[in-house]
């Protein structure tokens, strides 16, 4: 079996004295969609933010244990380099309002002062927008502001911006929670395409979404990784009673 793209070993995360992620051990494989779910406050978003070291940007936050990206400890890497390899898409679409669609796709390069020639820029913009299933809709309006787009299009623009950096992993923090059902369906369809090239880690409150789009699912409760299993197994025959209670809505 090939080496996992991401290995999490004895991992803990705190905000001050409050331990929000407890002793997580996990191996994730490439070209899969991994859903991370659990009730509010279970540590799932914190866990996601640890994977690209955004957690440590919060004052008083700290971690213990290891996260290995292709065998390399992410806490021994430069955070900037790490975030080029581990992209992130947030809950609400957040294209840079002062930038055009074209500039938004290239924002990672512009903000990190990475120089590109015109041909490379155009190739990256077209390829990223195509992968984000947005090219046909915006190819004649690349000089318009990103905020000119609909909510679903803006989120796909944010995905294009993330994949423009050619990441290994894409973190998605409830990427459809602010979208209508049609836009949500569009993003979910896109995730299936994206997993051919990337490993996707999706935090979601929507259990049906986790069931629909993911290959593997991790269930967190009170900071603990309760169960990690192929999605089909977790949703038909969960091994832990807490998982069963949560997914069947009998959680007290």
């Amino acid at each position: 079996m090939e080496r996992p793209i991401l290995e999490v070993k004895d991992f803990h995360a705190w905000f001050g004295t409050h331990e929000v992620v407890r002793n997580v051990n996990l191996s994730l494989h490439r070209n899969r969609v991994i859903a991370v779910m659990g009730p509010s406050g279970c540590g799932k978003t914190t866990f996601l933010r640890c994977i690209n070291r955004m957690h440590e940007l919060t004052p008083g936050a700290r971690t213990e244990g290891q996260i290995l990206l292709e065998g390399e400890d992410i806490y021994r890497m430069s955070p900037i380099m790490l975030r080029l390899r581990v992209g992130m898409v947030f809950q609400r679409p957040n294209p840079f309002p002062h930038m055009t669609i074209y500039e938004n796709v290239l924002a990672g390069y512009l903000l990190n002062n990475i120089k590109l020639n015109r041909n490379d820029k155009e190739a990256i913009v077209e390829s990223s927008l195509r992968k984000a299933a947005l090219w046909e809709e915006v190819k004649d309006n690349l000089k318009k502001k990103g905020t000119f787009l609909s909510g679903g299009q803006q989120q796909r623009l944010c995905i294009a911006r993330a994949i423009a950096m050619k990441p290994d992993i894409l973190l998605l923090d409830e990427p459809t929670s602010a979208l209508d059902p049609i836009s949500t369906a569009g993003i979910e369809e896109l995730l299936q395409e994206l997993k051919k090239n990337y490993t996707l880690i999706l935090v979601t409150h929507n259990m049906q979404q986790a069931a629909r789009v993911s290959d593997d699912t991790a269930f967190f409760y009170m900071g603990e990784l309760v169960e990690f299993a192929p999605t089909r197994q977790l949703f038909t025959a969960p091994q832990d009673q807490r998982t069963q209670n949560y997914i069947t809505g009998r959680f007290s």
Binding site: M207, Q208, A211, F235, T236, A237, T243, Q244, I247, T248
Partner: peptide, 9 residues
């Protein structure tokens, strides 16, 4: 209700 787990079974 899209039941899952024991409810689906």
């Amino acid at each position: 209700y899209q039941p899952v787990a024991i409810d689906l079974r």
